Lab assay of single mutants.
Amino acid sequence: AEKTGIVNVSSSLNAREGASTSSKVIGSLSGNTKVTIVGEEGAFYKIEYKGSHGYVAKEYIKDIKDE
């Protein structure tokens, strides 16, 4: 099942092309942005936001229960 997560940073969080800190940054998400978690790979979540996919470090995403 898809989960919703909240970007848990004070400034912004980089979204990357792949599940690695050396992957190209494809965008950034500001704190408290809601994202859909579609998968996980190592220390990263694969997320969907406004129709695009990217990878973000798990430690900066807070899971919330689907309402």
Score class of each variant (00 low, 15 high):
33 T>K: 04
49 Y>W: 10
28 S>E: 10
54 G>M: 14
54 G>P: 01
8 N>L: 09
63 D>S: 09
22 S>V: 08
64 I>L: 09
22 S>Y: 08
12 S>M: 12
1 A>Q: 12
14 N>F: 14
50 K>E: 11
14 N>D: 14
15 A>R: 03
34 K>T: 09
12 S>W: 13
28 S>D: 05
49 Y>Q: 00
20 S>F: 08
63 D>W: 12
57 A>W: 09
57 A>C: 14
58 K>N: 00
5 G>L: 04
52 S>T: 12
34 K>M: 11
7 V>C: 06
38 V>S: 02
24 K>L: 07
4 T>Q: 09
50 K>P: 02
50 K>D: 09
59 E>W: 08
58 K>G: 01
20 S>A: 07
39 G>M: 04
32 N>S: 08
62 K>E: 07
30 S>L: 14
33 T>R: 06
19 A>L: 06
54 G>S: 06
26 I>H: 02
53 H>K: 05
31 G>V: 10
20 S>G: 05
11 S>P: 09
47 I>M: 01
24 K>I: 07
42 G>V: 02
56 V>C: 04
13 L>Y: 03
5 G>I: 06
60 Y>R: 04
26 I>N: 02
3 K>E: 02
36 T>G: 03
60 Y>Q: 05
58 K>F: 04
48 E>K: 15
34 K>W: 09
47 I>D: 00
10 S>I: 11
59 E>T: 07
43 A>D: 14
58 K>L: 03
22 S>G: 10
59 E>S: 08
1 A>M: 14
58 K>P: 00
38 V>E: 03
50 K>Y: 10
43 A>R: 08
8 N>R: 12
21 T>E: 14
5 G>C: 09
20 S>C: 09
56 V>M: 01
42 G>K: 04
62 K>C: 11
18 G>T: 12
1 A>D: 08
12 S>L: 10
5 G>M: 05
67 E>I: 14
53 H>R: 05
28 S>G: 05
24 K>G: 06
43 A>H: 08
30 S>A: 14
9 V>E: 05
33 T>H: 05
56 V>L: 04
37 I>P: 01
7 V>L: 06
3 K>P: 04
35 V>L: 04
14 N>T: 12
58 K>Q: 04
42 G>S: 05
11 S>Y: 09
10 S>W: 08
21 T>A: 13
39 G>Y: 04
28 S>M: 12
60 Y>H: 09
35 V>G: 01
48 E>N: 10
30 S>H: 10
6 I>L: 08
11 S>E: 10
67 E>F: 12
40 E>G: 02
49 Y>C: 07
60 Y>F: 13
5 G>N: 02
29 L>M: 05
63 D>T: 14
52 S>P: 00
27 G>A: 08
36 T>E: 03
21 T>I: 14
39 G>L: 02
18 G>A: 14
14 N>H: 13
52 S>N: 07
29 L>Q: 01
38 V>C: 10
2 E>N: 15
56 V>Q: 01
61 I>T: 01
55 Y>V: 00
13 L>H: 02
51 G>T: 05
11 S>I: 11
44 F>S: 01
3 K>M: 10
30 S>I: 12
